[in-house]
């Protein structure tokens, strides 16, 4: 068996295969539900209803999608340049810490400037976390997969220290959480009465901005060139290392916005369970979106929907919520296979 490249994949192939991948995911998900002793159709129906079946469910899904759009964009931007940023989790927490520092401080600023300052500062903090691994990569050739991954653990321990020490809420009854943000430092809801904050709108705008950067600016052109063929890019005079640093600033900043939006928009304080692995799930989101920044939006909503739906389903049926993780893993595997088969056909001999 060998793979033969397809010069111009047909439209049927490009659309049919991903649809087939989703169908296969549903089939495998049903089998999983069956092994858990539940009715597969009922389980799937409950997941869908739990994710988008009501106004409340839909808003919950969109809320959950918001940080995933940010981390998905962070990963998509970095992976496009073949910068393997596995550390969106750490960058998210860096953004959250800075947001809390500014949001709880007596700055005396009115709401809008305060939110702007906090957002920009959070982005810088996230970028600052990603810069050392990137410099190690460009200067010394240290593999960034390892360094960015390890920084995640360091960051979690650091947050734990902050919450037990300097940032601990004195009125927190001993719980490891920070003081709550001032009212001016909270992102308001988009529509009064609907539980959806401006972080979601910011996420959509960020996706559009990243798309514009990638397709319309010289930086986007450089990022794509470096990612597709760094050797040819270097030969053509593109400053490869400089492009990687700029990519890191963008990627780290976007991941930090996830922390900013979760703290300022949703939670109002920093705690150790701020992110149930949004940084890692961002990798799945980005891969499902084929690293396309606009594709990250539906991809993040899809992934968030599975999580929210599975949560709600497990309350109604006796199927563990782990099914959400397995469904995502299966969806990702089938999608990667579909992508491969879009561009190659399998031939015998």
């Amino acid at each position: 068996m060998r793979l033969e490249p397809i010069a111009n994949p047909s439209l049927a192939r490009r659309i049919g295969l991903p649809v087939l991948a989703l169908a296969m995911t549903v089939v495998c998900g049903s089998l999983l539900a069956l092994t858990a002793g539940a009715d597969p159709f009922d389980t799937l129906r409950l997941i869908v209803v739990g994710a988008v079946g009501s106004k409340f469910a839909l808003l919950e899904t969109l809320n959950r999608a918001t940080p995933l759009i940010f981390t998905g964009l962070a990963v998509a931007v970095a992976f496009r340049a073949r910068l393997w940023n596995i550390g969106a989790e750490a960058q998210l927490y860096a953004g959250a810490i800075v947001t809390v520092l500014i949001g709880t401080g007596a700055t005396g600023l009115p709401a809008l400037p305060l939110l702007l300052v906090a957002g920009i500062a959070a982005m810088f903090a996230g970028a600052a976390v990603l810069i050392p691994p990137v410099l190690l990569k460009t200067r010394l050739g240290v593999d960034e997969v390892v360094t960015t991954l390890l920084i995640n653990f360091i960051m979690l321990l650091f947050v734990s220290y902050l919450l037990e020490g300097p940032m601990k809420d004195p009125a927190g009854m001993g719980w490891p959480k920070s003081t709550a943000l001032a009212k001016e430092a909270r992102l308001p809801r988009i529509v009064d009465g609907l539980r959806l904050h401006w972080g979601f709108a910011l996420a959509i705008l960020s996706a559009i901005a990243v798309w514009v950067i990638q397709t319309r600016t010289t930086l986007g052109y450089e990022i794509r060139a470096v990612g597709l063929n760094a050797k040819a890019a270097k030969f053509a005079g593109i400053p490869v290392n400089g492009v990687l640093v700029k990519t890191a600033l963008l990627s780290g900043g976007l991941a930090a916005l996830a922390g900013y939006s979760e703290v300022a928009g949703l939670k109002g304080h920093l705690s150790l369970d701020l992110s149930p692995g949004f940084g890692y799930t961002g990798i799945i989101v980005a891969m499902l979106a084929l690293l396309n920044p606009l594709g990250v939006i539906p991809s993040a909503i899809f992934v968030a929907g599975i999580f929210v739906g599975a949560n709600s389903m497990s309350r109604a049926a006796s199927v563990p919520t782990y099914i959400a993780d397995m469904l995502l893993a299966i969806a990702l595997l089938f999608m990667v296979l579909a992508i491969l088969l879009t561009r190659y056909r399998v031939k015998r001999g």
């Binding site: 794509r224 060139a225 050797k231 040819a232 890019a233 030969f235």
Partner: peptide, 12 residues
């Protein structure tokens, strides 16, 4: 490998 980027268009 050096002269062109295979997955870029002719324009790019």
């Amino acid at each position: 490998k050096t002269g062109t980027i295979a997955d870029f268009s002719l324009t790019e």
